[in-house]
């Protein structure tokens, strides 16, 4: 092979390396921009919970599940089990910052809420927490997206997003799908 042909190939390889570096840099900058400006970040809560006593003590007992308003804070607590979410339906107000907290007593699950960026794993021994703002009203599907056993495909819940003026907590601060 002639020397100038080898030089041409080398030049092409260097050019391509620069291009790929630029592409990766652009994608990284876009991700950083989304994180810093639009506050779109992967859920990174690290909080442990005892899966053996999940339903007996602490915040994930049956009476505490679902949506609760505490001052200006709106939090929904959901337990993911094989093969159902408890509760099956939660109510959330539109255009307010809300917190979703998940725990599981059995195996690894995962959730996403359709049409939103809400997406997290639910791992035994840890509390998964997601902050978000729902902008569209309606019933949003929340399926389990991590294969958790034979009934995995039947495991889903509903996030009912209602207009802010229709979001009315009861005297105990709770809002349920049944009450609406």
């Amino acid at each position: 092979m002639r020397a100038d042909t080898e030089q041409d190939i080398l030049k092409t390889e260097l050019w391509w390396t620069a291009l790929v570096t630029a592409v990766v840099t652009a994608i990284m900058l876009a991700i950083i921009y989304a994180g810093l400006v639009h506050h779109i970040n992967p859920p990174s809560n690290i909080e442990t919970v005892d899966p053996k006593t999940l339903h007996l003590t602490g915040e994930f007992t049956e009476g505490n599940l679902g949506t609760r308003v505490d001052g200006s804070q709106i939090t929904s607590r959901i337990v993911a089990t094989q093969f159902a979410f408890q509760p099956q339906c939660i109510v959330m107000p539109a255009n307010r910052t809300v917190t979703l907290r998940f725990a599981t007593p059995d195996v690894i699950h995962g959730i996403l809420v359709t049409g939103t960026n809400v997406n997290t794993m639910i791992i035994p021994g840890y509390v998964s927490q997601v902050h978000t703002v729902f902008t569209k009203t309606g019933d949003l599907l929340m399926p389990c997206h991590e294969f958790c056993g034979l009934g995995h495909s039947q495991m889903w819940a509903t996030v009912r997003v209602v207009p802010e003026d229709e979001f009315k907590p009861g005297p105990d601060g709770r809002v349920t799908c049944d009450a609406r």
């Binding site: 989304a34 779109i40 992967p42 859920p43 960026n117 997601v130 902050h131 978000t132």
Partner: peptide, 13 residues
């Protein structure tokens, strides 16, 4: 996807 799906879906974290 980033501009027309991911960003409009809004904040999460």
């Amino acid at each position: 996807m980033y501009a027309f799906v991911f960003l409009p879906r809004g904040m999460v974290g």
